[in-house]
Write a protein that binds this DNA or RNA. Structure first.
Lengths: 220, 220
DNA sequence: AAATAAATTTAGACAAATCTAAATTTATTT
DNA sequence: AAATAAATTTAGATTTGTCTAAATTTATTT
């Protein structure tokens, strides 16, 4: 496996994430995501195309090749393993891990990452519930839906939370909702799209539409 | 604390290490140490001087200021804590830790390093026996001498080993010599400068001059 | 102390990554 | 389908870190 600069890695990772939403990624989208300028994007796209990480025709947007996707999954693996380490071993809170992992992810020593993985017990998801690719780049895509889509009176498990801020963390901790928590929607209110949910055998609690939109559960 | 580039940090660290031997560091020395060219050194010295990390007059060599030393100790702290982590937690061997730590040391998040330190139990020395600066940059300089200087029939403790290769590691493991091992020199041979030493209550063993030169013990 | 050698610095070039401003292509409107 | 707007690319500049080759300074020799 070749090595890439921190800058290249940040572009590759951003394209990977944007692709999941869009399929094809555009110059302006990527510039917004990376807080840089469209001209800088075009420059880098040429470079990544030359390295065969990207399919790219001028003016037509871009998407990662199979090779590019493999590189992206390697970066995401490193990022999420470090996030797990920071939360589990160093007792960082949920909202702090991302920023630190942004730096650690660029240390790309395969043996380091594989031994870290082993040390951590081969975790399957990071502290936000996002899946961690394995050493071969295989990622477990479990089907998830937003809790707002969950049928009433069906028990499910919280899979992930899409907002990673300290504010949502505070609220989730207060309501005793975490990754892995069993939840059941008891009632949906049309007026404000708030939900009444039950956690295990505790009394019903109310969650707002804004909160519900960020909570995803396994479909099963 | 300001942030420095990986390149700047590598220069600062190299100057710190060379200074300990020489006092004043020269352009060629540093170029050799960093495997770069003298012209590159001069360029960087101007930059570090402008940042007040370095005392430098053209043609006169250079030395870190108090600020520069503080920065160097921060880098060394990170490097040695990661070395300890790699050896202790991820079970890397002694000769493998340096290379990986060379990358990890440039992730300069104070909270990360202080929490790592705590997680590791505030270790005082890295796997080679070199002291780890604390969060305030204080470094414990314990007096050490080469085992070749140790008086006959005096028990001492192995403090550090200056060569970090896998070859010396193999030999040290075979002879059951490690950091912290209690040793006693029983006899010195003029002919080849080999030593006969005792480890704890085991039979006398012989070590060559080449090996002895790399073993340092506490003076106490 | 002049000549020579060694060390160091300067001058100018280059690659990587970024930017601004202008030009071009594609998309959208009237 | 022209005209206009939006998106994208190109051209040229800038910064950082590096280099080679030439010039300069310091050290060493005869």
């Amino acid at each position: 496996m070749l090595n890439y600069t921190t800058s290249e890695e940040n572009y590759i990772k951003a394209i990977y994430h944007l692709q999941k939403v869009d399929g094809m990624v555009t110059t302006n989208e990527l510039a917004a995501e990376l807080e840089s300028k469209p001209a800088s994007i075009t420059d880098m796209m040429k470079k990544l195309k030359a390295k065969k990480l990207l399919n790219y025709q001028p003016y037509q947007g871009f998407r990662l090749t199979a090779d590019g996707t493999k590189v992206a999954l390697g970066i995401i693996r490193r990022h999420r393993l470090w996030e797990f380490f920071l939360a589990e071993k160093l007792k960082f809170t949920w909202d702090e891990v991302h920023e630190v992992a942004e730096d650690l992810e660029h240390v790309s020593n395969k043996k380091l990452i594989d031994k870290l993985d082993e040390y951590l017990g081969f975790p399957r998801v990071d502290p936000h519930g996002d899946p961690i690719p394995d050493a071969n780049g295989k990622i477990e895509i479990s089907k998830k839906i937003c809790i707002t889509e969950l049928a009433v009176n069906t028990v499910s498990t919280v899979a992930s939370v899409s907002d990673h801020s300290s504010e949502i963390l505070e609220l989730l901790e207060h309501k005793k909702i975490a990754i892995g928590t069993k939840v059941e929607v008891k009632k949906k209110f049309e007026f404000d799209n708030s939900l009444e949910i039950k956690i295990n055998r505790q009394p019903v609690i109310t969650i707002s539409e804004q909160l519900a939109k960020n909570i995803f559960v396994y479909t099963s």
